[in-house]
Amino acid sequence: MSGNGNAAATAEENSPKMRVIRVGTRKSQLARIQTDSVVATLKASYPGLQFEIIAMSTTGDKILDTALSKIGEKSLFTKELEHALEKNEVDLVVHSLKDLPTVLPPGFTIGAICKRENPHDAVVFHPKFVGKTLETLPEKSVVGTSSLRRAAQLQRKFPHLEFRSIRGNLNTRLRKLDEQQEFSAIILATAGLQRMGWHNRVGQILHPEECMYAVGQGALGVEVRAKDQDILDLVGVLHDPETLLRCIAERAFLRHLEGGCSVPVAVHTAMKDGQLYLTGGVWSLDGSDSIQETMQATIHVPAQHEDGPEDDPQLVGITARNIPRGPQLAAQNLGISLANLLLSKGAKNILDVARQLNDAH
């Protein structure tokens, strides 16, 4: 009898209710805020589980004197976190989706994509230029951005401005803007500013005609071990179906173009009346040469937790077992079709030249 009692006690200790789920994140304040929001949602869904947040620095956090596009290494903000995932030191990792490459290392998958916040870019102005827009900034004003995508589009749109690289986390960039006289304004992701509670610093939100956004911008991705079915089931509740389908289309477009950090590629997606609209573009580094096109596809946005595919093969690095396969494939095909259209119009040449120029500098 006593033996059975011990077995029952052991089973209770090993039951999922007692389990601590370890969540990996970057150390920056924004990353911690984003991770806290994901953990809060998981806690609400699984009140019996405990969650421990483990923060670590990544290569991208450490190399702050070089433009991201020049470092010449993929997975700048993800490699150390993936290493911890691989060694079973954490069970899942919360990322900004735009930091996750469209091809993940073997053994990993994006197990959830959370509801997207505003994906557009924002302009934050130096205190002396508050009330201005990019259009009304004085001639030769210097605007800071760490992104080739932003610089290429904005140089084309605002030729009277000069664009220079600015690195560091959000706090560091804002301090550089406010305390030094080098920059009249800087460009940042609206979602990051909003998550930090800095709505009052948003001086201008850039519309798609001015600057399309990065693939996955404004959404959070939760990376897990691809074979860890328990954790895949656990994080599945975080999937937002519309965000998922938009981001599958965007990531398929980028992957098929073979774009990345070192080339200016941008997108804009919208879901309306059962249609998914995808606009994508590529630019030369100075913005003088560009190709942009829009395509659409009829896609039914499923309700969360309709029964999805059981075999769960990944699409552009994403596993969404609780979302039907048909809409996911339709979104992926839309991204591939748009990429093929741009490639047929000469996108590869623009991107190759951009890559060579970026590598040469």
Rank of each mutant, 00 (worst) to 15 (best):
V237E: 04
V23C: 05
F158T: 14
F77S: 04
E117G: 11
E210S: 05
L134T: 05
K62M: 10
I231P: 01
V282F: 09
L174I: 12
V235W: 01
D311Y: 07
I318K: 15
F253Q: 01
R26K: 01
M271V: 10
G72F: 14
S69Y: 10
V130P: 12
F108P: 14
P302K: 05
Q29N: 15
Q275W: 01
T172M: 05
D311F: 03
T298A: 08
R26L: 01
G236R: 13
S28A: 07
G72K: 03
V124W: 05
S146K: 04
L97V: 12
R201G: 08
E86M: 10
K87H: 08
D233P: 06
P119F: 10
M295G: 14
K140N: 11
E162I: 12
L100E: 13
L137I: 14
L254M: 09
Q296R: 13
E52K: 05
I63G: 11
A252L: 03
H83I: 08
E86W: 04
K132L: 10
N340T: 10
I113W: 05
S45L: 08
L238R: 01
E117D: 12
R167A: 10
T25A: 11
V90A: 07
A219H: 01
Q292S: 14
A191C: 04
V267M: 15
T41I: 12
P208Q: 10
I318M: 08
R156W: 11
Q292Y: 06
D307R: 05
S146P: 04
A266C: 01
G72W: 06
V130I: 13
K176R: 11
D307L: 01
C211E: 01
K70I: 13
V142Q: 06
K62L: 05
L137D: 03
A249K: 04
F253E: 01
L254P: 06
I71C: 09
P105D: 05
A226S: 08
L278G: 09
L76I: 06
E80N: 06
L42M: 08
D178W: 06
E258T: 01
A219F: 01
R195D: 01
P105C: 05
R156D: 07
D178T: 07
D230S: 13
Q180R: 13
H300C: 13
V124G: 05
T59A: 10
D240N: 15
T109R: 01
S288N: 07
L154V: 10
H207G: 11
T59G: 07
R251F: 03
R325N: 05
A360G: 14
T78M: 04
D311Q: 11
D307V: 08
A112H: 01
E86G: 08
N169S: 12
P309A: 14
A266L: 03
L104S: 10
A303Q: 01
G287E: 01
L148A: 01
F253H: 05
T41D: 10
A122N: 11
K227E: 15
A219S: 09
N88Y: 12
Q229K: 08
K140L: 11
G287Q: 01
T243P: 05
R167N: 08
D312P: 03
A31I: 01
T41H: 12
R116Q: 05
D311L: 05
T66I: 14
L76G: 09
D230H: 01
K115D: 13
T58Q: 04
E117W: 11
L254S: 06
Q180G: 10
N358S: 15
V103E: 09
D307E: 07
R255N: 04
L232V: 14
R150M: 06
N200I: 13
A347Y: 15
V39W: 06
I299A: 11
P159A: 12
R149G: 01
P47V: 11
L148S: 06
L343V: 15
T133C: 12
V263A: 15
F253D: 01
L64Q: 08
A303N: 15
C211M: 15
T78K: 12
V202H: 01
R251P: 05
L154H: 09
I113P: 01
T35E: 01
L97S: 05
V38D: 01
G72R: 08
A339S: 07
L238D: 11
L245S: 01
R116T: 04
G197H: 01
V301Y: 09
I186C: 09
P105S: 09
A84R: 06
P47I: 04
E310P: 03
E82K: 06
N358Y: 14
L315R: 04
G326A: 15
P324C: 04
N340P: 01
L338I: 03
N340K: 12
K27N: 14
L81Y: 04
K132H: 10
F108Y: 13
S147A: 01
K79Y: 12
G203W: 14
I113Y: 01
P101N: 07
S290A: 01
L42G: 01
P138F: 07
A249M: 01
K43P: 03
L137S: 06
E135N: 08
M271P: 01
A191I: 01
S184N: 13
V39N: 08
A44R: 13
P105L: 08
S344Q: 06
L174V: 10
I323P: 01
D240W: 01
K157N: 13
I71D: 07
V103N: 09
T109D: 01
Y277T: 06
A189V: 01
I231R: 04
G48S: 12
G221H: 06
T35A: 11
R173N: 03
K43N: 11
I21V: 13
M212P: 05
L148R: 09
V263D: 03
I53T: 07
A303H: 03
D289N: 06
H120L: 13
E80D: 14
L276V: 13
K79R: 11
L188A: 11
L68G: 06
K348Q: 09
Q217E: 04
P241Q: 15
F77A: 04
P327C: 01
L174F: 14
A31F: 01
A67G: 09
Q29K: 12
V23K: 01
S45T: 13
D286G: 07
V38Y: 01
T298N: 07
A270G: 06
A151L: 11
S165T: 14
N88C: 13
I21D: 01
Q332H: 15
E310A: 13
T243M: 01
D273Y: 11
A84I: 05
A339E: 01
G111W: 01
A31P: 01
Q194Y: 05
G346F: 07
P241Y: 01
L148Q: 11
I231G: 06
R26Y: 01
V90L: 12
A112L: 07
K87W: 12
S184R: 13
T269C: 15
A252H: 01
I323H: 07
E179R: 09
G221Y: 05
N171L: 12
E179V: 13
V235M: 11
M56V: 07
I187T: 05
I33V: 08
G72E: 13
K157R: 11
V222D: 01
A252S: 01
K43H: 09
T279P: 03
G168N: 04
L238T: 01
L338D: 01
I21S: 01
E242D: 12
Q34K: 01
W198T: 06
G280Y: 01
E162C: 15
Q180L: 12
V143D: 04
L188Y: 01
L170W: 01
L30C: 11
H120F: 15
G280S: 04
N333I: 15
G111F: 03
K227T: 07
C211P: 01
F125Y: 15
G335F: 10
E223M: 01
R19K: 13
F51Y: 08
E306N: 15
D311M: 14
V267D: 01
W198R: 08
G218S: 01
C261L: 01
I350C: 06
Q328W: 14
G221T: 06
F51Q: 06
R156G: 08
A44P: 06
L238V: 07
A191Y: 04
T133P: 05
D99K: 01
R26I: 01
R150I: 01
S284C: 10
N171Q: 12
T109N: 06
F129V: 09
L285M: 12
S344P: 14
G287V: 15
N349P: 10
E179W: 09
V20D: 05
E242I: 01
Q217T: 01
I291G: 07
R225S: 08
V316P: 06
W283G: 13
R150P: 03
D91P: 05
S165L: 05
E86R: 13
G24S: 06
K87R: 12
I187E: 03
R251E: 03
E162P: 01
L232S: 04
G281M: 01
F163D: 04
E73R: 11
K227Q: 09
N358P: 15
V39M: 07
G335T: 04
T145V: 10
Q229S: 03
E250S: 01
I336M: 05
L177R: 04
G317F: 01
S146R: 10
P327H: 12
T25E: 09
L285T: 10
Q181H: 09
L104N: 03
K348T: 05
D228P: 15
P47Q: 11
L100I: 14
R201W: 09
L100F: 01
P106Q: 11
